[in-house]
């Protein structure tokens, strides 16, 4: 256990990836193997305050915190790119671009949508808890499986979607 949070000096970091784009790290010249990166404030800061942990393949060994990266763009461009890719994968929350069909029935709602990650149909229940409105008209949806979707501006969505969501926002 570390007593103090280690704010990492970016010069000590050297990320690299495998063929299948898993993220690995050499820290102060030492190869630490696979690492995971976690946003400390996922809603507030997307590219700042990133925790880096050493990850043993066994889920039983406690993951080991290496330290905190204050801002991704302190890294050289090629390194930052690797981190952004990893963040994109770990925080896969597709943005809903357009909605072709909405059906609301008995407190559950089914959407047929096109998202930034491709076409997707999903069902939500218990709209009261699974629709989370954030600042600036942003809305986060969670489907029955726990998958999340993101609406950047609810006022720009189609009428039907707004109508289904408005009472929960």
């Amino acid at each position: 256990m570390q007593e103090k949070i280690n704010f990492i000096n970016v010069d000590d970091l050297e990320f690299y990836t495998s063929d299948t784009s898993l993220l690995f790290l050499r820290y102060k010249g030492e190869d630490l193997g696979r690492v995971s990166i976690i946003r400390m404030f996922p809603f507030k800061y997307e590219e700042e305050y990133i925790v880096i942990r050493q990850e043993n393949y066994s889920r039983f060994d406690k993951e080991n915190e290496i330290g905190i990266l204050r801002a991704v763009n302190e890294l050289p461009e090629s390194q930052a790119k690797l981190v952004f890719e990893e963040l994109k994968k770990r925080y896969f929350i597709p943005e809903i671009i357009s909605v072709s069909e909405v059906k609301e029935e008995f407190g559950s709602a089914t959407w047929k949508t096109v998202t930034t990650a491709g076409e997707r149909d999903f069902t939500m229940t218990d709209l009261g808890t699974n629709v989370r409105s954030l600042a600036n008209n942003k809305v986060m949806l969670t489907d029955v499986y726990g998958n999340r979707y993101y609406i950047p501006d609810i006022t720009k969505m189609d009428d039907k979607t707004q109508k289904v969501l408005e009472i929960w926002i």
């Binding site: 495998s18 063929d19 299948t20 784009s21 898993l22 393949y57 896969f92 489907d143 499986y145 998958n147």
Partner: peptide
Amino acid sequence: LNAVADFTLA
């Protein structure tokens, strides 16, 4: 280590 496939919670 390599990733062989990705999936959503569904």
